[in-house]
C-alpha cells in the first residue's frame, strides 16, 4: 500500500527573539491509506506543528513531505483533507446545519447536494435533528461532533484532528472516542490524531507515534496489534496495557535528557 502522507527528514525551525526553536527535526514517517495514526508527546514536542505542516498551515524549513502524493499546498488547494481543531470553532451566527454547509458553500457545491450531505454527516455524528439549532444551544461534546461533521461534509479522504477532545471531560471523551472509531470503520478514512492522552492514543490507533521535545522528533513508532473492532473494555486487556506501557516508556525516554 502506498503512503498517503510521507515525511522524510522533515525540519521546521521557528525564528524567535530568544533564538531558533527546533519544532521538528529529522522527522521520517509514512502513513498508509486507512491508517488511524495518533501523535502523542509532551507540549512542545511538535505534534501539532507536524499536523499543521501536513495541512499546509506551517511551512517546513527542511526535508520533504507529500500528502496524497503531492505537496501539502496542492493537497490543501484540492481540498483533500478535513481539519478538526482543538476547539469546535463553530460560527455563532450560523445554525449547526449552516456551519456544516460552510465548506460546501465555499467549495461551490450545488444547493440540493449541500442539503443532502449535511443530513448525511449529521447522522454520521449522531446529531440528526439538531440542524436548525444554534451552537450555544448544544453541549461542548455536541459542538465538537458538529465540527467533525463539518470536516467530513466535503468527503476528503484524510482527516487531521488536533486534540479534538482535549477540552472535554472523561465520560464525554470515552463516548466520542467510541463514535470516532465507528466512523473511521464505516468511512475508511485515513486519520491523523494529535492527543495528550495515552489511553486515547492506544484505544484509537493502528499506529502510535511517540514524540519528544527540544528538538521535536519521533522517538518511537508502535504498530498496534489490537483488532479494528474495539469495544471500550478492550482497555482492560493485557495487550492494551502492554502497548500503553510501551508508549509511557517512550515518553519517559524522551524526557531522560532533560
Amino acid at each position: 500500500m502506498s503512503a498517503v502522507i510521507s515525511a522524510s527528514d522533515l525540519d521546521l525551525t521557528f525564528q524567535t527573539n530568544d533564538g531558533p526553536v527546533h519544532a521538528l527535526k529529522g522527522v521520517d514517517l509514512d502513513i498508509a491509506a486507512g491508517d488511524f495514526v495518533s501523535f502523542i508527546g509532551p507540549s512542545g514536542c511538535g505534534k501539532t506543528t507536524f499536523l499543521r505542516v501536513m495541512a499546509d498551515l506551517e511551512q517546513p524549513t527542511g526535508g520533504g513531505i507529500t500528502v496524497n502524493g503531492v505537496s501539502p499546498a496542492e493537497a490543501r488547494k484540492s481540498r483533500s483533507y478535513g481539519y478538526v481543531f482543538q476547539a469546535a470553532g463553530l460560527y455563532p451566527w450560523r445554525t449547526i446545519g449552516g456551519n456544516i454547509r460552510l465548506p460546501l458553500e465555499i467549495m461551490g457545491i450545488p444547493k440540493a447536494e449541500q442539503a443532502e450531505r449535511v443530513a448525511r454527516v449529521l447522522e454520521l455524528v449522531e446529531l440528526g435533528g439538531f440542524e436548525k439549532k444554534f451552537p450555544w444551544q448544544l453541549s461542548g461534546g455536541m459542538q465538537q461532533r458538529a465540527s467533525i461533521a463539518r470536516a467530513l461534509s466535503f468527503d476528503a479522504d484524510i482527516l487531521l484532528m488536533d486534540e479534538p477532545f482535549g477540552a472535554l471531560d472523561e465520560i464525554v471523551r470515552d463516548h466520542l472516542n467510541e463514535q470516532l472509531l465507528k466512523l473511521w470503520d464505516r468511512t475508511g478514512k485515513t486519520i491523523a490524531f494529535v492527543t495528550h492522552s495515552i489511553p486515547e492514543a492506544v484505544y484509537l490507533s493502528t499506529k502510535i507515534v511517540v514524540m519528544s521535545p527540544r528538538p521535536g522528533r519521533i522517538t518511537d513508532v508502535i504498530d498496534s496489534p489490537l483488532p479494528r473492532a474495539r469495544p471500550l473494555d478492550i482497555r482492560d486487556t493485557a495487550e492494551f496495557l502492554e502497548i500503553a506501557h510501551r508508549v509511557r516508556e517512550g515518553l519517559r525516554a524522551g524526557h531522560a535528557d532533560d
Binding site: A55, L57, R76, Y83, P103, I106
Partner: peptide
C-alpha cells in the same frame, strides 16, 4: 487565528 486557519484549509478566497 483558528477561524482563519479553518478557512485556509477550505482554500477559501479573500472575499469568501
Amino acid at each position: 487565528a483558528m477561524q482563519l486557519d479553518l478557512l485556509r484549509t477550505y482554500n477559501a478566497s479573500k472575499s469568501q
